[in-house]
Computed example of a mutant assay.
Amino acid sequence: MIIYKKFSFDSAHFLPNVPAGHKCGKIHGHTYFFTVFIEGDIIPELGWIIDYTDLKKGILPIIELLDHQLLNEVQGLENPTSEILTIWLWNRIKPIFPGLKRIELNETPSSGVIYEG
């Protein structure tokens, strides 16, 4: 079974490796939305895979590293494309929640990344 929880944060970034004149080379911001999917068996005595409160408590410190930050200044995000940001999130969430199955990250309502490790 897979459960999920949605989160969001606001950050600015620029993409240093795009061609000269590309609009994403300038500092700009996004409200990022991401969904964390956790796979596991139901704990019979509790009736769930994981308590959503525990999931939220584990994710919020990671969000605090990104929220209202210039992502390019966050260690490991010097070239903060959505793809690299999704891998960065995965590498911080997976040790906390081994059942992590998937992350979906949207930088706009119509564009995003799905990563499954």
Results as ranks from 00 to 15, higher is better:
Ile96Asn: 02
Phe7Gln: 09
Met1His: 05
Asn17Met: 10
Pro98Val: 09
Leu77Ile: 06
Tyr52Lys: 12
Lys57Cys: 07
His13Asp: 03
Thr31Lys: 10
Val113Asn: 00
Ile38Glu: 06
Ser11Trp: 04
Ile59Ser: 09
Thr108Leu: 03
His22Thr: 04
Leu89Gly: 06
Tyr32His: 10
Leu55Pro: 05
Ile93Lys: 08
Phe9Met: 07
Gly117Pro: 13
Phe37Ser: 08
Phe14Arg: 14
Pro61Trp: 04
Asp54Gly: 05
Glu64Trp: 05
Trp90Ala: 07
Thr81Asn: 01
Gly58Leu: 09
Glu39Thr: 02
Lys101Glu: 14
Pro19Asn: 09
Gly47Pro: 02
Gly21Glu: 01
His13Ser: 09
Gln69Val: 13
Gln69Arg: 15
His30Ser: 08
Thr53Ser: 13
Lys23Pro: 15
Leu55Ser: 08
Leu100Asn: 10
Ala12Lys: 08
Arg92Glu: 02
Ile3Val: 14
Ala20Phe: 03
Leu89Ala: 08
Pro109Val: 09
Glu104Cys: 06
Ile59Met: 09
Trp90Asp: 04
Ile27Cys: 09
Lys57Met: 11
Tyr115Gly: 05
Pro19Cys: 10
Glu45Trp: 03
Gly117Met: 12
Ile27Phe: 10
Tyr52Trp: 12
Gly47Ile: 01
Ile50His: 10
Ile87Glu: 06
Leu89Gln: 06
Val74Cys: 02
Thr35Phe: 05
Leu46Lys: 15
Leu89Phe: 06
Glu78Asp: 11
Pro61Lys: 07
Val18Met: 05
Trp48Gly: 09
Asp41Tyr: 12
Gly76Pro: 00
His13Gln: 14
Ile50Thr: 08
Lys94Asn: 02
Thr35Gly: 06
Gly47His: 03
His22Phe: 07
Gln75Leu: 13
Asp67His: 07
Tyr4Ser: 15
Ile2Asn: 11
Lys57Thr: 11
Lys5Asp: 07
Gln69Ala: 14
His13Thr: 06
His28Phe: 08
Phe97Trp: 13
Glu104Asp: 08
Ile43Asp: 09
Gly99Met: 04
Asp10Met: 04
Thr86Ile: 02
Lys26Ala: 10
Val18Ile: 11
Phe9Arg: 08
His68Phe: 07
Ile93Leu: 08
Phe14Asn: 10
Asn79Ile: 12
Gln69Asp: 13
Thr86Gly: 00
Pro44Thr: 12
Ile2Ser: 14
Thr53Asp: 11
Tyr52Asn: 11
Glu64Gln: 15
Leu65Gln: 15
Val18Glu: 02
Leu105Trp: 01
Phe9Pro: 03
Leu85Glu: 00
Asp51Cys: 12
Leu105Met: 01
Ile27Asn: 12
Gly47Arg: 05
Asp51Ala: 08
Pro61Ile: 08
Phe34Tyr: 14
Asn91Gly: 03
His28Asn: 10
Phe37Val: 01
Asp54Trp: 12
Gly99His: 06
Phe14Pro: 07
Gly21Asn: 06
Phe33Pro: 01
Ile49Leu: 05
Leu89Ser: 06
Ile93Glu: 07
Lys6Ile: 14
Ala20Leu: 04
Ala12Phe: 07
Ile84Lys: 11
Thr86Val: 01
Cys24Lys: 14
Ile43Arg: 11
Ile38Cys: 04
Ile87Cys: 01
Ser110Thr: 15
Trp90Val: 09
Asp54Lys: 15
Lys5Pro: 04
Glu45Cys: 03
Gly29Asp: 03
Gly47Lys: 05
Gln69Lys: 15
Glu78Thr: 13
Lys56Gln: 10
Phe7Trp: 10
Leu70Trp: 12
Lys57Arg: 13
Arg102Trp: 00
Leu66His: 10
Tyr4Gly: 06
